[in-house]
Amino acid sequence: MTVLILVPAGCLFAWVWNDNQDRRDSTQRERQGVEYLSALAPLVSGLAEAESSALQGVAAPPASLTTAVTNVSAVDARLGADLGTRERWTTLREKIGKFKTIKGDAEAIFQAHVEVGDLALALYTSVQAESGLLRDPDNDVSHLQQVVAVDLPTTVTQVSRMGDLALLVTGATPARRAVLTPQFGASVEFVTASVDNLTDNLQAAAENTSSTTLSGQLVSTLDQFRRGVEALTRGANPGGIPNPATMATAQAQLQTSLAALSGVVARETTNLLDDRLDSLDLRHAGILTAGIAVLALTLVAAAMHLAGRRRAPSARPAPAPAGSDATRGMGRPGPEPGYGHLNQAPAYGDAPTQRERSGVLR
């Protein structure tokens, strides 16, 4: 019975324990992904600023980009091996380091920065996939990670390119303008679609979350971000002449709102994952306690059963002690039935004579 109880109970315990451990490991990996993505957000902003500065004739990268590169390098040193980002980040960092050496006209400089920006977006995609954020089972975390890993970096990159393309279209020759104008129009449409996707995902996260702070913080930061994008789009003036002053102001506003929105999304995502880890830790402790209790109760029951068998009385009668009435006369033949009076032994000292025996027989 002990084996019949312990074997299925042990199998059930192992299955529940391993399932809970797998969920804890995947959640911790997602937290690593959010940490890495949080470090990449300032990098994307720095790349956008560097692109605009380069088109204005400033070859040196801005200080914001240098600081962002340093921070991402530190995060990659800790998490890059686990998330498989080491090679991608090394390539991207080398490309950023060559910004000072870029030569050519405005379009060549623009294309060089576009290449680096695409590498940064590819790094976002890699972190999203390797950390498991792309497969999160909770609706709120799933939508938030889509915002922080796809919508925000894509929107910022495309908004920056839209503004820079507007300036390139304005200063280009008629022949080059015919080539750049469709790119500018596609960039405007891309920005609009990215902002819509970002808004939809944030609204879906707010509607399906257990967080008490997510909805309130998202409303103000999202509105600020959308206003920055709209201001930059107005400054780019699709179909007309762009206003560089309006675009510069909108760019600064957009960077501020991006930092605020990225911080809110990353912080709320981390909080939700931390809450899940706390719940899984409690479940882990409960599983362990239940397993120990089942094992202890089973062993106690088995010990009580064995002790009871040792104390049970035997059905066979106990042997009589030596010298008792029951053992006295053992080995002697008893009297034959019906003739007991003939075989009675005489008392000590009264041995019968031959004549007396003959008279008795007669």
Rank of each mutant, 00 (worst) to 15 (best):
A60S: 10
A307F: 08
F110S: 01
A326H: 11
R176L: 14
A250F: 05
P62L: 06
A302K: 06
Q251A: 15
A248W: 05
G323Q: 03
S160I: 00
L133A: 06
N20W: 03
E35C: 09
M247E: 05
A312G: 03
R177A: 14
V156P: 03
P313C: 02
D200M: 09
L40N: 00
T66W: 04
L218G: 02
E115N: 07
R310E: 12
A108I: 11
A204F: 09
D138M: 05
S160T: 08
Q224Y: 12
A172R: 02
P137K: 02
A312F: 05
T157W: 15
F190S: 10
G338C: 10
M330G: 12
R227M: 12
G349C: 08
D196K: 13
L297D: 04
T298F: 07
S64F: 02
L261F: 00
R309S: 09
S38C: 08
G33C: 00
L37G: 06
A41T: 15
G84I: 01
A303Q: 07
H341L: 15
V300S: 15
R226N: 15
T157L: 11
L282F: 12
Q354G: 11
D151T: 10
G163C: 11
A260Q: 10
L288N: 09
T157S: 12
V72D: 00
A81C: 07
A186P: 04
R316Y: 06
A303E: 03
L180T: 02
R226F: 07
R309L: 13
D82V: 11
L254R: 03
T249E: 15
A320W: 04
S26A: 12
A106V: 06
S215T: 13
G80S: 04
S215A: 15
V75D: 01
Q251N: 13
V264S: 02
A63I: 08
G338Y: 10
P317M: 05
V219S: 09
R316P: 01
T270S: 11
M1T: 07
L272K: 04
A74D: 09
E51H: 14
A166E: 00
D275I: 04
V58D: 11
G117C: 07
A245E: 11
D164K: 11
P333L: 13
